[in-house]
Design a binder for these strands. Structure first.
Lengths: 391, 391
DNA sequence: CCCTATATGTTAAAGTCTTTAACTATTGTA
DNA sequence: TACAATAGTTAAAGACTTTAACATATAGGG
């Protein structure tokens, strides 16, 4: 029972957030259309928009062509990119990536650092290592001034494993550290910037909605699937990823798709998708233990095309089951293996043969920029908060 | 993009709904605790509660024992059952069931009518048949006065198949009728009562949350599974069932759990759960084509225990996959086959062996009262609307 | 060239809710 | 009996949005 009551300031915050979200996603919208879209009066929108302009978050951008023949022209509004910056962080087994964007979501710079386990030079505590690694990267991206002084408004972190987003804690991720690691508080404290943390796949799903060219055509339900060393998924309802009751939802990789196979070291099942298609499993099969997943997929196609087809079938089976349960508008497949080669088409063909009216597409996100997830998380929370907090 | 703006009356409606929901689910709560729970001030709650009492929706119920040692005692509040009545309707292949409850959710009466296909005496049009069937039942339950005059505040209909809840239309259900059937508008028009329509499984999931003894301990995520002639599921986030982008979500019965089996006549797949465990399939296997599913399960256990175990395994596999994807707090299994016999335990044991922290339990709902789903739907919408509309 | 119709944006006063702050009511304890 | 503690009430103040005019901008017609 978490339905809380609301008061007038909550209401204003909500309406401000609605305006910021719409301006962001449409990139170009007039006060009048905001009023229509949000169901508010033009008067209210004028008041809120002019306040946002005064605060420097929005700006007017010339006159827009009329839709009707007569009448005063609409004044297009847009996010003022220089209004502030966003730091996105992506943490997984392969690296810690730090990414800087402006408030409109354009990437201003990226830095890659080694994975958490190899950041020993920064200390013993996992959180400490992350803080210092991010500090080093932001130093390069922003200069010596503190992020807060340099105009950073929000920071978002996407990290693998189970994450308690409410408290900003990595609850469980044995591949990175032993035991829970609190991330949001140490980062917020060190950088003086509000910080949000969530699972990396959920964060990337949000990036798919907020930071791609296709944004604005926000699907009612997005099933976002990531194929990296393992397989994970996230599922958004009305633009919000569902974390599950125990922050474990979207474990597409641990759904069972075959009656036989190795015992999965993570879930203990036989025949779960990840036990069949993970980088670990393919690495053993192909005797190339350290290779990246896209190389392994490519090699499998070369060496054993029938096993490659089998892999696509397993994937399609898992996807088909997930589609039956979620009924999404769109399925987005993210990860290097889908970028080149026939894997995406092999999978999509097998799923779409079931004539379900949902679009299966390649993610619009660059798999080399996992920190985009963190940036999207930060942007969403910033909008939700209705604007900046004092530095 | 459905995030709408809010104004002051919306706010009041939301807060009223929050109060009604809390009083309903706790059955017994004081103004002060409402304020704490909702994050409003005692002053606001006093104003809203006294208004609800004036309108006859709430009533005070004696003094509550103090939690602290000193201080004025809390005044317990409860829904005033006589404040109005709710009509719930359940429509499936087996029957049209009409059910009357008071505003507190107690069942006052039930009437069963034949399935839609055999209601020819009421006319040709499906909607017309339903309207007249419900009219006959409500006549018996309420007397000759129109439902509106007889104090009915809201009506809810749970119907099998794909339902567009927003417009109250049965979009697709070939087993009941050919083509879409608009239900909400004809019913609301004929009875003069606001009417909500949704899929029956989603409606029953809502009933599990709102109309059982265990209400109040509302799980953050409920996976509700119905085993009747087929297998369906619904999944609620924060008390709201997710319908999916095309009103098709929760098709647990059409997720694939085996590599072999008959081709499913509904989804066209091989090995989907429903193709293996439906009443149709079991009826053929056991040469008892017209039997009910619970009888078939019982017979299977007698005749071929190893096939019964197989059935439980398939079920557990499908459930395990759904749990991986949804990460629910609770899984509730609804339907006559789970009420008696070892099926529930067989399934629960197999799923729980995966040591996932989610409770698997029998539904608290009586499988003989499918119309409870409609009643829950109506109650939810009534609360959401913040109170009654003029007759 | 002016007038009108039409659409967008702005403002001050009014309306709707919640909060604030003080007050009343009830109960146990010193 | 005084008093501390908790629950509930009320009037005035505060925070938003809406209402209802009004101002601004553009096309087209006489």
């Amino acid at each position: 029972m978490k339905a809380r009551g609301w008061n007038a300031p909550d209401l204003r915050k909500r309406n401000r957030a609605g305006i910021l979200n719409l301006v962001h996603s449409t990139r170009n919208i007039a006060r009048n259309d905001l009023a229509l879209e949000l169901g508010l009066t033009r008067a209210s929108v004028t008041i809120l928009v002019n306040e946002l302009i005064d605060e420097g978050l929005l700006e007017e951008a010339g006159t827009q062509i009329a839709e009707g023949r007569v009448g005063r022209r609409k004044i297009a509004l847009r996010i003022r990119p220089e209004a502030g910056r966003i730091i996105g962080v992506g943490i997984d087994q392969e690296r810690v990536q730090v990414l800087l964007t402006d408030l409109a979501g354009s990437v201003l710079g990226v830095r890659d650092l080694p994975p958490p386990a190899t950041l020993a030079r920064y200390g013993d505590e996992p959180a400490e290592r992350i803080v210092h690694a991010v500090a080093e990267a932001t130093g390069e991206l922003l200069g010596p001034a503190s992020p807060c002084k340099a105009g950073v408004l929000w920071m978002g972190v996407g990290v693998t494993g189970r994450v308690d987003a409410e408290h900003g804690i990595s609850v469980r991720e044995p591949r990175l550290w032993n035991g829970p690691v609190s991330l949001a508080d140490p980062l917020a404290l060190h950088f003086g910037v509000p910080t949000s943390v969530d699972n990396n796949v959920r964060a990337l799903a949000l990036a798919e909605l907020l930071l791609t060219e296709a944004r604005g055509s926000e699907p009612a339900g997005l099933l976002f699937v990531k194929y990296g060393p393992g397989v994970g998924a996230s599922w958004t309802v009305g633009g919000v990823p569902w974390a599950g009751a125990h922050n474990r939802s979207g474990e597409l990789g641990h759904t069972v798709v075959a009656a036989e196979g190795p015992v999965c070291p993570y879930c203990g099942r036989v025949g779960c998708l990840e036990s069949l298609v993970s980088a670990r499993t393919l690495g053993i099969r192909l005797a190339r233990p350290r290779s990246k997943i896209e190389e392994l997929c490519h090699a499998l196609l070369e060496i054993a095309p029938e096993e490659f087809a089998q892999l696509a079938s397993w994937f399609a089976l898992a996807l088909g089951n997930a589609i039956e349960l979620y009924d999404p508008t769109t399925v987005a497949l993210y990860g290097a293996p889908f970028r080149s080669g026939p894997l995406f088409d092999e999978i999509a063909d097998r799923v779409e043969s079931n004539e379900r009216p949902c679009e299966i597409k390649r993610s619009n996100l660059d798999p080399e920029l996992p920190a985009l997830g963190g940036a999207a998380l930060a942007l969403e929370r910033f909008f939700l908060a209705g604007g900046p907090k004092p530095c």
